[in-house]
Design a protein around this nucleic acid. Structure first.
Length: 497
RNA sequence: UCCUCGGUAGCUCAAUGGCAGAGCAUGCGGCUGUUAACCGCAGGGUUGCUGGUUCGAGUCCAGCCCGGGGAGCCA
């Protein structure tokens, strides 16, 4: 058995490919079978004069996603995708598939999500999963090369620790338990044992968020380091992101091309990243420049909509006389334009809200999704925002010794509107201050006894952060929605398949 | 929970309150080193559900169900 990716080593030699029929085109003298074997695609040709009647009939009977073994001679051919093709001499059929739901044409989101188990076989989804895999592997390499130990935080937790987010409740024998929303607190304990650790696991949030950035179950990578301050923490986050992007650009170029990712902005992702304080971020949001940018955006959208309306009209009048092939193109483009116009109309409704949110921002307010987008629009690289007001950050965040109102936390915002991909900071290492915070936040002291022990027995300055895997994949692949970044997304109203 | 857009053939979408249609997919026939192949013919419908207005409802009204993406919250 030969893999499609290794066909270059089999040129002018016999090979057997095992896989599934991705597409078929048939004629009088030739049948072209595009075979999918999991590693790639290969066009396989059956010539009527070259094979027995049995083989020809077998080839004719193949349908989309039928499982087969094709044997033949490997030939280099520029006309074929991948540069190599198989001249078939033998066919073994495992199963003839009938009525495979996902055709090589257009489908809507709802239909594709219902068929996610099959959608994963499609080229684009296949490429995204390979990029996801590369990102995961790059993360492990990055940390392992730097002496970090991967350790696992528990998924069942005994209490709704940080208070703010809604958690999934479940039963743990006779006790209540919650699915973890973060492994961080446990990460701190593990860092005190090993110095530098990272967790890599699923996290769960029962928030009823229906947006392109949210899943109820997602994967998070959380490094935690003893003797690291905020500055060192930011340096690490910056190096990690640069490394991941560089690795994907180098090793998954073909996949990014299948996805249609424009990589020009990704090529620029290298140290140093812009770093601004929360206070500077407020200044940017409330600046004239931001006001002008949003007003220009409104104008640009209006112009774009006018142009699209005209194009739509032109396409519509052309449609009647168009030939079939052209009709298909027109329909496709029409759908694109309609979708874009809907987005623009949504923008028209949103821009005034964004403007109000940004321009009226006061010190102490938290940032919304639109504020993050406005901030990142002014930079080409991931943006680091540090030093948030203590009131909007978690109880464990260390306060700036110079200013009690400021927490030493940092968020990293991805460019191109992808939002927060990293949240982290330096942790409070003084037991008395931590106890105060726990009381202020009205948290059950008893549940944090073990966590307080970390400050009781050899407390040290330490820091860490959490990286959201799916948002990172969405950003690097340039996807509109995180649901395509994970094999079986779990989100509000979606538990099947 | 709120705001907003939507639900018509297996799929993607049309249809001033007036005969429910097209493309793709499927089946059959033709043609071609084809590459979202192409050309012709055919089959395919409880217009999400319930009720209302009307001579007449896919279209208007009310309620419900399902989905899209936005707010809040967050990675």
């Amino acid at each position: 058995m030969t893999g499609i990716t290794e066909l270059n080593r089999f040129s002018d030699r016999q090979a057997t490919l095992k896989g599934w029929v991705y597409n078929k085109r048939s004629g009088k003298a030739h049948i072209f079978i595009v075979l999918r074997d999991g590693s790639g695609l290969c066009q396989c040709i059956v010539g009527k004069d070259d094979v027995s009647d049995d083989v020809w009939l077998a080839a004719e009977s193949l349908t989309q996603e039928s499982s087969v073994e094709l044997t033949g001679m490997v030939k280099a051919d520029e006309r074929s995708l991948g540069g190599y093709e198989l001249h078939v001499t033998g066919i073994y059929i495992h199963q003839i598939t009938s009525e495979y739901p996902i055709t090589p044409k257009d489908h809507g989101v709802e239909f594709l999500m219902e068929n996610r188990h099959l959608w994963l076989r499609s080229q684009r989804q296949w490429a995204i999963m390979r990029v996801r895999n590369e990102i995961i592997f790059a993360i492990h390499r990055f940390f392992q090369d730097r002496g970090f130990i991967q350790m696992d935080a528990p998924i069942f937790t005994g209490n709704a620790a940080e208070g703010t987010t809604t958690l999934f409740e479940t039963a743990y024998f006779d006790e209540k338990a919650y699915l973890t929303q973060s492994g961080q607190l446990y990460g701190e304990a593990m860092a005190m044992a090993h110095g530098k650790i990272y967790t890599f696991g699923p996290t769960f949030r029962a928030e009823k968020s229906k947006t392109r950035r949210h899943l109820t179950e997602f994967w998070m990578i959380e490094p935690e380091m003893a003797f690291y301050d905020l500055e060192m923490n930011m340096n690490l986050a910056e190096q990690m992101l640069s490394y991941i992007v560089a690795e994907v650009l180098q090793k998954r170029k073909a996949e990014l091309e299948i996805i249609g990712r424009d990589t020009t902005l990704l090529e620029q992702v290298s140290s140093p990243f812009p770093r601004i304080s929360y206070t500077e971020a407020i200044d940017i949001l409330t600046s004239d420049k931001t006001r002008e940018m949003l007003e220009k955006m409104e104008g640009d959208r209006q112009a774009e909509k006018t142009a699209l309306d005209e194009e739509l009209k032109a396409l519509n009048s052309e449609f009647g006389q168009a030939k079939k092939g052209r009709k298909f193109q027109i329909e496709g483009r029409t759908r694109e334009i309609r979708a874009r116009i809907e987005e623009i109309e949504e923008d028209f409704r949103n821009i005034p809200v964004w403007k109000k949110s940004a321009l009226e921002k006061k010190w102490g307010d938290d940032f919304g999704g639109s504020d993050e987008t406005i901030l990142t629009m002014q930079f080409d690289k991931p943006l680091m925002v540090y030093g948030y007001p203590t009131a909007i950050k978690a109880f464990y965040m260390k306060r700036d010794p110079q200013n009690d109102e400021v927490a030493m936390g940092v968020d990293v915002l991805a460019p191109e509107g992808y939002g927060e991909i990293i949240g982290g900071g330096q942790r409070e290492d003084n037991i008395n201050l931590l106890l105060e915070r726990i009381k202020e936040h009205d948290l059950p002291e008893e549940a944090f006894k073990w966590y307080l022990d970390l400050r009781k027995f050899g407390s040290v300055p330490h820091s860490g952060f959490g990286l959201g895997l799916e948002r990172t994949v969405a950003w690097i692949c340039g996807l509109k929605h995180v649901r395509e970044t994970i094999p079986f997304p779990r989100m509000l109203g979606r538990l099947y398949p």
